[in-house]
Simulated assay, not measured.
Amino acid sequence: MANRLNQLLKQWRDSKDSQKWVLATIIETDGSSYRKAGAMMMINDLGQYFGLLSGGCLESDIMLQARRCWDSGHNRIVEYDMREEEDLAWKLGIGCGGMVRILLQPVDGENDYLQLDNLYALLEANEAAEYCQVIDQKSPKNTLSTAAPSDRPVAELGVFKQVLKPAPHLAVFGGGVDARPVVAIAMQLGWQITLVDPRTSYARDGHFDASVNLVRQPINSLGQSVWLQQIDMALIMTHNIKLDAQSLALVQSSAAKYVGMLGPIHRTDRVLDLLPINRDQLTKPLANPVGLRLGGELPESIALSMLSEAHAFIEQQDGLSISGILS
């Protein structure tokens, strides 16, 4: 299921005039909840929804509430309070123990599609945007700005404001068999993916989704590539020392915040000797050996390990067990 905002908007754009749509946004939570303020979902009159605001427990009722938006053309605010035994959420058996307030807004040409067309264009151009939604039960009045003063969603003076960012962009250097689960999992996360491999026998057609940006030029010729300044993460896994060295040199001038390289330390030392520099001279911190200690030897397990570390890094989390059961 697509949950990233750019994926939701793509689903909507393909039939924005042939179906009725509602945008559902969590504007406030208190206590335990599946998603936090800012989470969005798109709903249409075919009974389909894209994205999740709960673990699937609230969606059927949200769908019913959305129909009132189509009838009135106005916003609707609904609240599910799992703290109260008399509340609908409790009767639905959710039992998360928290409260969720959701703003439902009809999406149509009369309200300029809530600026979602323009928002999608900005996200596709790798630009962040401040999206503002007026919190009332009147006709929608949403505004969009490229200014991004705050990363934290806030509800103040009757307006819900949040900065919406493009999906994270991962560059994978190496199109071997073990790159396939890396790309597949990253796609499930909704990430943008650039796959780089100049070798004709690697990254073959049919092994990777058509939405992957496949780059086949020699690695040492890619220094001026636009995508280099759009990536957030890079994983180097060509299994070729010379190509790994070229890849590592290339990403030093990129926008990547996280760089991981597959292989043991002694092999990476050989890669660095080809540059020739040492680890202290790298402009980007190098995760090597790459990944979290998840165990498993199959390519899928290794892919999960690498992507878990990259995910934790860009989300600025520690990657530790939430329950502490592993400590």
Rank of each mutant, 00 (worst) to 15 (best):
V163K: 15
R199L: 03
C69T: 05
N288V: 12
L326I: 09
A147S: 14
K36Y: 11
R67Q: 15
D81V: 10
Q19H: 15
S308T: 02
D205S: 13
Q192L: 07
R199G: 01
L235K: 05
F173G: 00
Q48A: 12
G260F: 04
L170K: 03
G51T: 08
H207P: 02
A210E: 13
Q317I: 05
N126H: 14
M42I: 04
E110S: 15
M63R: 15
G223S: 14
I62P: 01
V154H: 12
L170S: 01
Y131G: 04
V271G: 02
V251E: 02
A89N: 02
R267Q: 10
W21Q: 07
N278P: 01
A128K: 15
C57G: 05
G295Q: 02
Q11D: 10
V78C: 01
M40H: 15
V163R: 15
S18M: 07
S150R: 11
S305Q: 03
G109I: 02
G260W: 10
P140H: 03
G93L: 00
M306N: 13
I27A: 04
A2E: 12
A66H: 06
G95N: 08
R180L: 09
I26F: 05
S247G: 02
W70K: 08
Y49M: 08
L46G: 13
L144S: 04
G260L: 02
I277C: 14
E86L: 14
R270P: 00
Q133G: 06
P140C: 06
P153I: 01
P276L: 09
R83Y: 06
K242W: 06
M233Y: 05
K36C: 07
Q252Y: 03
V172G: 05
Q133N: 10
S33H: 07
D112L: 13
D45M: 11
Q162R: 14
M306E: 11
S305D: 01
E84S: 15
L116W: 07
K138N: 13
C69Q: 06
R35I: 09
Q229E: 10
S308P: 04
V290M: 12
I325G: 06
E28H: 15
T29Y: 00
T238S: 11
A245M: 03
S33P: 06
L195M: 01
A129I: 07
L5I: 13
F313Q: 12
S321C: 13
R270C: 08
Q65C: 13
G31Q: 05
G175C: 04
L170E: 08
K284H: 06
D178I: 02
I185K: 15
R76S: 11
F50V: 14
G55R: 09
S327P: 12
A312Q: 12
L116S: 01
K165I: 11
I135L: 12
